[in-house]
Every structure is written in C-alpha cells, then in structure tokens.
C-alpha cells in the first residue's frame, strides 16, 4: 500500500521540538480525530508553515499518512481562522490552552469526533470575539467528557440511582462518576443547585449561561472528574489558577 494524503481542517493541540529542525505535532483533525504528525524543517525555517504552527488557529492541513507508522507528515498548513483575539487576554489564552489539553488527553487516536471538533471551533471563535467565559468552558468540558464516554451522572445518584431533586445542592464524587446522595456517602465536592441545573442544561444540549460562581463550581467538579480518570492533574487548570491568584 502506498502513501495516502489527507486534506482536513485541524487544530494544533501540542507542538514539541524534535531534533534540530523539526516539530512533532498532536493535531485534532476533523476527518480522523487526533493524529500525530511531524513537521519537517518547522523550527529552522518559517517559510513553509509560517505562523500556522501556533495553537488556537483553525488550520487547513495536508497530511501524508504512511501505513508503516502512526506518525503522519505535515505537508501543508494554512490558517483558516487565526483567532488572534485569543492571544490578547491572558485568561483567554489560559482557557483556550485548557480546552486544547482536554482534547489532547481525552481523545482516542485516529477516531473522528466531529461533535467535539465543532464545539472546539465555536469555543475558540467565541474566545476570539467575545473573550473568556467560564460558562462556555464548562460546556466544552462536558462535551469532551461525553464524547470520550466519561460524562458525569447529574440527574440521579451514581450509587442508588435515586433522582436528585431539582434546584437543590448535591454532593459530587469524581471517583463514583457524578452526584452521590448523602445516604450513600456523598462526595468531596458540593455542587450548588444552580451549578447543577446549569450542568444538566448544558449536558442536554440546551444553551445555559452560568453565573461566574456557579460556573467555577461546575468547572471544579468537572476538572476533578477528568483528573480522577486521567490519574494526574491537568496543566491548563494549574495555569488558570496561577494567573487568577
């Protein structure tokens, strides 16, 4: 079998220097999900890829896929949407970085996830135009958890299955995948009634704008859930905490 060429829209999730002149990239492609690729000469010369190998931009990428290796070769990358506004605010950069990290960590290789791709595209576009929003970040986190099969249980207790009353605060246990009622031991995080309602609305695909405090409450719970599944801390969350201190 020969070499296959893939033309697809993509986001750069991570770029690591390789050797003297190359970069190893992790890309979230629309057509094939997460792929690794080498960008030959990307560090030595900017003629070929220009400013396209900086994160946050939506790219049109051409990749040479080789059957002998999981590492594709990036042949062309053109910026479709630069999202330059993201780099104008530190919090926007932190939230965008956290979103890319979440995709990098939760996506399985070579598995298209068009819904998450569209969600990331809208999220970065909104960051570019409207600035940072913890509420929108929570929406993206929920989407990433859902497509990776890790969506939290929000409507009923994760142990006994008893429905959680609406608009009431609940205990959230990352280790048991969602809300857990008090009689089953509860959990280390308290989700306010409004935060829980907001999370349910977002999980059901409805538009919901959470107030800052509720969005932070919801984001903390989702981050704890993600970190529990990954078995390590998310770097983007640590960065956001440091810049907001």
């Amino acid at each position: 079998m020969g070499r296959e060429t893939l033309d697809t829209r993509a986001f750069l999730l991570k770029s690591t220097p390789y050797g003297e002149s190359d970069r190893i990239l992790s890309l979230f492609t629309e057509a094939r999900g997460k792929l690794s690729a080498i960008a030959l000469g990307a560090r030595r010369s900017r003629k070929r890829f220009g400013g396209s190998l900086e994160p946050f931009a939506l790219l049109q990428a051409r990749l040479a896929l080789r059957p002998s290796t999981d590492l594709a070769r990036l042949e062309l990358a053109e910026v479709l949407e630069p999202n330059l506004g993201v780099s104008k605010q530190l919090v926007s950069m932190g939230q965008a970085g956290a979103a890319l990290e979440l995709c990098r960590e939760l996506l399985a290789p070579d598995q298209p996830e068009p819904r998450l791709f569209r969600a990331l595209e809208s999220y970065l576009r909104a960051l570019d135009v409207r600035g940072p929003s913890l509420s929108r970040m929570v929406g993206l986190e929920l989407c990433a958890l859902e497509v990776s099969g890790l969506h939290p249980r929000l409507g009923e207790c994760g142990v006994c299955g008893k429905p959680v009353p609406p608009r009431r605060a609940a205990r959230f246990d990352p280790a048991r995948g969602g809300v857990v009622c008090r009689s089953d031991g509860g959990g280390p995080i308290t989700l306010s009634g409004r935060a829980l309602e907001g999370l349910r609305a977002l999980a059901a695909g409805r538009d919901a704008e959470l107030a800052e405090g509720d969005a932070k409450n919801a984001a903390d719970a989702l981050r704890a859930l993600t970190e529990w599944h990954l078995g390590r801390q998310l770097k983007g969350a640590a960065f956001l905490r440091q810049i907001s201190d």
Partner: peptide, 11 residues
C-alpha cells in the same frame, strides 16, 4: 516563559 499549554505559570 509562561506556557498555558504546558502549565508553566507565573509561580
């Protein structure tokens, strides 16, 4: 340098 994608913060 600060690195939002690698968790390198002001600290």
């Amino acid at each position: 340098l600060l690195a939002p994608l690698d968790g390198v913060g002001p600290e």
